[in-house]
Design a binder for these strands. Structure first.
Lengths: 354, 354
DNA sequence: CAGCGATGTGGGAGCGCTCCCATTCCCTGG
DNA sequence: CCAGGGAATGGGAGCGCTCCCACATCGCTG
């Protein structure tokens, strides 16, 4: 009698209870149930308890679609990974990033919509999704120097936070790791190991991350009072093969080098191959340092000294920043500078290669 | 005049055009627009064109929430990765899987909802999400032998497809790689290389994938007419350290072994370390074969012979299967046996370790 | 030429919420 | 003792779609 008749209001397709039914069972109105569900303070203790009981008894879970429609918010956030540029980073990078984002979103009870866009059509389709108001905000990973997407999204009024930046003066909110510091730390370490002819294998010059690490390398040399030598600078494309080729070029140009700072572990792995070919021992003849501290570094022979980035933490931080922007509502502009650290510190992990 | 007045029907929060407005501009009814949008054949060519023009002019994109609410389907699919068991697989595994799933979903214009569940509370929360009808179906990765989740979901009436199975007689739809074949191929290769005392480092016995690979190893020996020797079988936990310990145990028990089939690349890496400690050369003294063909295999010294799984293809196949189940509607039962291959072939990649 | 099914169409009736206004009730101060 | 103002509440009015029924309209058949 307590419920029964009021329950089967209509021949519902699926048997899930609705807010209305919870209200009936709790003996209150729809509004009150909604308030309880959404944690409004304007509810009596008594009503709150009655509703809680009814929710438990019916196993009520609010219908997300209805919420989104009525409230024009989705409680979902998109993480966009342009797959074309995925190999830029050593392999586990994205999984770590996803892990951080996912954990932080789960905590806030938001959904993660993962979007790998590899082709232009997929990209267009993705913009359609955004237009269909499927997400409250967007996280952008691995943004290239001239990518127009971030600005386009921002202009749409959609909150956006990027992982990494496109240039020094990035107008859009971002979270990055201290790439300059990474280069400096690597060089300082090598200098401390008594190396003097320190080369570097940099990434493509059109990527900020590559320029920053190269800048750190130069700064490190300057701090150690070492005269820079451009023949010690080679460029790779963040792939293993690129690292191998760059290393060969370096050995040819500057056979006297005694250390190499590679801007990624994967390039370091390539470089290691080239060194082996050339009969140079690591670390005896040439010390080697990479960036990322990925599996690759641990598995190399000898294990690679590498500068670790707090990837998962970047994911978490990005997500916090985005959620804050979403909560602040539209027109709030970029988040205040101080609120969150935008550039996270890196850390040198010393192994046997240096 | 053509539109104008009929447009600003209400002081809408956000300026996106609605189906109603498209209908007005096209000079047809709401129903017709809906039919055109959803590709119904019951529309005259003339109406279809008028609607198409109006859609283009207004830049109309259907509101997903409204669609989901009215149509009780979400056009989204969840991929669940239990993070606790993530290390079971070599690192790039999940990214490859995600890649395959994502590509296939994008093609079908569905959204990917990625859910990493690592803790019990997160898991419960996830079940809540499902109850909130946020997805049309679920893809489950890395399912453990006694995981009740698949059955629970299936009982909820939610279409489910798993990656891998829990046992030989898996009642729920799955896509797996030919783990038995992987073991057989590895052993056949080693036999072909003239090895006779072939050991194996298996995974935990409560995981089907481990049992299957071990079964393949045994079958391979039988096919080669080699008498099995249980002292040549050790068990690891799919980690590097586990591989190392297992290898040490094997060397102790069966010093005369001349080859090892490790059930994962990562365990092979651990085994390689133990072999080095023991002064055994690879491949001269002991030939080594792994499974996964991951980065790890390529970077080992010497590069590791490994059995490749078509991970991305598994992701694609799972997704196709799930989409089909969703399209077939509830109560359609498990998909017909023949429609899709459930067990994808593996492939031996020979490198210098054997 | 009436009669019928096939085909195209418009629009009502929801889907299950949130928003917000109106109402009720109770406590305060004058 | 009554006006006035909060606090708690009920419920109407949508949100933008899909579903489906009812209503043309057409070309056939017998």
């Amino acid at each position: 009698m307590r419920e029964g008749s009021s329950r089967g209001v209509s021949g519902r397709r699926n048997g899930r209870p609705t807010l209305e039914e919870v209200a009936a069972l709790a003996g209150v109105g729809r509004g009150t149930v909604s308030r309880v569900i959404n944690g409004s303070p304007r509810v009596s203790e008594q009503a709150r308890e009655a509703v809680a009981r009814a929710v438990a008894e019916l196993g009520y879970v609010p219908n997300q679609a209805a919420r989104a429609l009525a409230g024009s918010r989705t409680d979902a956030v998109a993480l966009v990974i342009p797959e074309t540029e995925a190999r830029v980073f050593s392999e586990p990078y994205f999984l770590d990033l996803i892990r951080g984002v996912s954990a932080e979103l789960a905590q806030a009870d938001k959904q993660l919509l993962l979007t790998l866009v590899r082709t232009e059509p997929e990209r267009r389709r993705f913009e359609q999704y955004l237009a269909a108001q499927r997400v409250d905000g967007v996280l952008l990973a691995s943004v290239h120097g001239d990518d127009p997407l971030p600005d386009r999204l921002a202009r749409l009024g959609l909150p956006v936070v990027m992982n990494g930046r496109r240039s020094e003066a990035e107008p859009i909110d971002y979270v990055d790791s201290d790439n300059t510091g990474a280069g400096r730390a690597a060089v300082a370490h090598l200098v401390g190991r008594g190396r003097a002819r320190i080369a570097t294998i940099s990434g493509p010059a059109d990527m900020y991350v590559a320029r920053a690490r190269l800048g750190g390398y130069r700064a490190g040399l300057a701090e150690a009072g070492i005269t820079p030598d451009e023949s010690l600078v080679a460029t790779g494309d963040f792939t293993e093969e690129g690292g191998r080729l760059a290393m060969r070029a370096l050995l040819e140009r500057a056979p006297g080098l005694d250390a190499v700072f590679a801007a990624s572990d994967v390039m370091a792995a390539g470089a290691r191959g080239a060194l082996r070919e050339a009969g140079r021992r690591v670390p005896e003849d040439v010390a080697l340092v990479g960036v990322d501290d990925s599996v690759v570094a641990r598995l190399m022979d000898p294990p690679l000294t590498s500068v670790r980035q707090p990837i998962e933490e970047m994911g978490r931080t990005m997500t916090r920043l985005l959620l804050r922007k979403i909560a602040d509502g539209p027109g709030a502009g970029p988040a205040a500078e101080e609120e969150q650290p935008r550039v996270l510190p890196t850390e040198l992990v010393v192994r046997d290669s240096s």
